[in-house]
Design a protein around this nucleic acid. Structure first.
Lengths: 232, 232
DNA sequence: CTGACTTTGTGCATTTTTAACACCAAGTTG
DNA sequence: CAACTTGGTGTTAAAAATGCACAAAGTCAG
């Protein structure tokens, strides 16, 4: 093994954040158009260098906050990418995070890194190349989300405070990439006993309005921290 | 966001490797007694700096190889720890891996980093402090293993080529920290159809000898790559 | 104001999976 | 050969998952 030496203190570390949102039955990701070299003009995941006095998770929420103004957001580390040639300007490792936001609440603040930011449907990204190894990072994060959602009820982070069961079902269908049976889905969700019927209805829809629900915050947080089986 | 700058290229990155083995119904971890500052004399996870021209996973297998002489070992990245103060000599982030080895096959090669290496029972580590934040890393890796084992049949990496069903059960009990029903366990394992009855028996035991089994390598690898539900 | 349209909301029967449980068999030892 | 230790086996009851079809609530257009 190598001796401890100053020679090792030559790496840059960034955080890249896959910010998921859900809108009209589609999962979307917030991307930026790069405004600096390298890969200028290409779509990329929002990210930044980690500052010398900054914890990793902190960097991740800072990126999110600077871009969207959102705070207190669900955030999870996925893994670190560090292939030797992945950044043309030196050895740059990146720690990948994903976050889940309510898509209506964002408000994009462009910066030196980001000329433009835009929500892009996940489905549309399958075959379009992103900057760096961001396609691989996106894949890893989407898979992590898919796994997570089976065991923690975090999907809810993507929905507005009041939602219909059909919206919830569409969300799960988008994440799991599978069709779910309406009756079985409702039975299961309601039996889990952390969503509350508000006795309100949708308005302004051209059909029978659906009932609105919200989460029981306490029970929800218990399940988030303890975990439970959420197979659908 | 910050401008790109050479100031960011000042981090060291290490890999720490939680090497799991299984022996006599106990899960064990291969630890080293540190031979250099900081934390000289304390037990620690084997780890090293990542070289400038080296991929992360490569560093992880190099560490394993240098310590044990083992090659081609199951290795999985867990996550990266980088709290600002975690290393007294500067900003050092560490990427945590775990690996699964057959405990008989190792042969420890001490080095400048490791005066001594030793297999320690996981149970004994609950309350003994390791160097750096290695207790937290160990916890994260053990949890990752616990999760993984429910969805991939990787537990087998820890067993010798020929094994009894009781050994296999004890292994799963150690990883899941739960007691399993003997009959249900056997039914389930055998129905999965990737272990083969060798029609041989244990020898030299002072009781009814157990049958020996091995893996069907092809089916096993299919399940490792595709994943499947391995709930026990 | 009524008929057509769209989406909501609900129950039951069947199959599958899981969980609980106890005793005889095989070999070793003194 | 009796005592000891661990190995090996099947059934049943309960719970969970699956599959499936139709009436109800509201909007809209003529």
């Amino acid at each position: 093994m190598a001796e401890f030496s100053q020679d090792f203190f030559k790496n840059a570390v960034t955080v890249d954040n896959v910010i998921f949102g859900f809108d009209e039955s589609d999962l979307k990701v917030l991307l930026i158009k790069r405004g600096t070299e390298p890969y200028t003009g290409l779509w990329a995941l929002p990210g930044d260098f980690i500052y010398a006095d900054e914890n990793i998770e902190n960097a991740a929420s800072r990126i999110l906050y600077e871009l969207t103004g959102l705070d207190n957001v669900y955030l999870e580390q996925v893994r670190t990418f560090g292939a030797v040639g992945r950044h043309p300007l030196g050895r740059v490792l990146t720690v990948a995070y994903f976050s889940l936001v309510k898509i209506n609440h964002y408000d994009v603040h462009p910066s030196s890194f980001a000329q433009t930011a835009q929500w892009v449907k996940l489905a549309e990204l399958r075959n379009s190349p992103l900057a760096f190894d961001h396609n691989a990072i996106l894949d890893a994060c989407f898979n992590a989300l898919k796994q997570r959602v089976r065991v923690r009820p975090i999907g809810f982070e993507l929905l507005p405070p009041k939602f219909t069961l059909t919206e919830l079902q569409h969300l799960y269908e988008a994440i799991l990439e599978a069709d779910l049976d309406k009756r079985n889905f409702r039975k299961k969700i309601l039996s889990m006993d952390f969503i509350v019927d508000l006795n309100e209805s949708q308005e302004g829809v051209a059909h029978r309005p659906a009932r609105l629900y919200e989460f029981d915050k306490l029970k929800y947080e218990k399940f988030v921290s303890e975990g439970f089986n959420f197979e659908l």
